[in-house]
Computed example of a mutant assay.
Amino acid sequence: MPSTSMNPNVVTGDSDTGKSYLLRLVDYVLGAEELKKIIDEAGGYETAWVEFANNDGDMLTLERHLTGGDVRAYSRSIEDVRSGPVDLDDEEESAADPDGSEVLAWRREGRSEERDVTSRLFPFFGMPENVRVRRNGDGQHQRLLSGHCCRRS
């Protein structure tokens, strides 16, 4: 499992070693509709995980099944999630599944205000969840999505 630091990171390697696939996996967990290409080395894996840490030292782990569906969000590290359930206080327990996760839509449909990856990730980093960006020369706007940072044209 690749690990990065809080500083800028550079992923290097020879051709066909998985660099682009790693970016596609992150994009997929952040809300891409599908994983466009699956490499042979992914055989035997069922889920993709992405772990974030903010400046306050808080952790956020996102998990998505490789065949699609919604995203699970955890307020702890991948290692802690995989090691077993967490003790929740009463407030957390009412808002989360028994494993301490929150199910997020991989994307919102239409004018839905359903919790999605962006609505959890942006506030984690101190941003409002509904950032709007200009979409075109006509001045139309759209909601900035967490996956926009990974998408290539």
Rank of each mutant, 00 (worst) to 15 (best):
L88D: 13
T12R: 12
R108F: 01
M127Q: 10
S101M: 11
R82W: 04
E114S: 02
K19I: 13
F124Y: 05
R108K: 12
S146R: 01
F122N: 05
P98Y: 09
R135H: 03
S5I: 08
E93Q: 10
I39A: 07
R135L: 04
V131D: 05
G44C: 07
R143M: 12
F124V: 05
G84R: 15
N9A: 15
C149H: 04
G18R: 14
D80T: 10
N130C: 04
N136Q: 09
M1T: 13
D70H: 00
E51Y: 04
A95R: 13
E41M: 01
D58L: 09
A32N: 11
E33H: 12
S15N: 15
D56S: 11
L145T: 01
D56K: 14
C150L: 09
D58K: 14
S153K: 04
F125A: 03
D97W: 09
P8K: 15
V71C: 03
H65V: 05
N136G: 10
F52S: 07
D116T: 03
S119R: 12
Q142M: 06
V11R: 07
R120S: 10
E63G: 02
L62A: 05
G100F: 07
R72N: 10
G13R: 10
G43P: 00
R76H: 09
N7L: 15
E113C: 03
L145Q: 07
T67Y: 01
V131E: 14
R82K: 15
R115H: 00
V117P: 04
V131F: 10
R108G: 00
R111D: 11
S146F: 04
T47Q: 09
T67N: 05
N9C: 14
M59Q: 15
G68R: 06
E129T: 14
G100A: 05
Y74I: 10
K19T: 13
R151D: 00
S20M: 13
G69T: 00
S153H: 03
R135K: 11
V26E: 09
L60V: 02
S101L: 10
M6S: 15
Y74C: 05
P2Q: 08
F124T: 03
H65P: 00
M1E: 11
K37V: 09
N136P: 08
I38E: 13
G110V: 03
R108W: 03
S15W: 09
A53E: 15
C149D: 01
G137L: 12
V117F: 03
V11A: 13
S3Q: 13
E102S: 12
E109M: 01
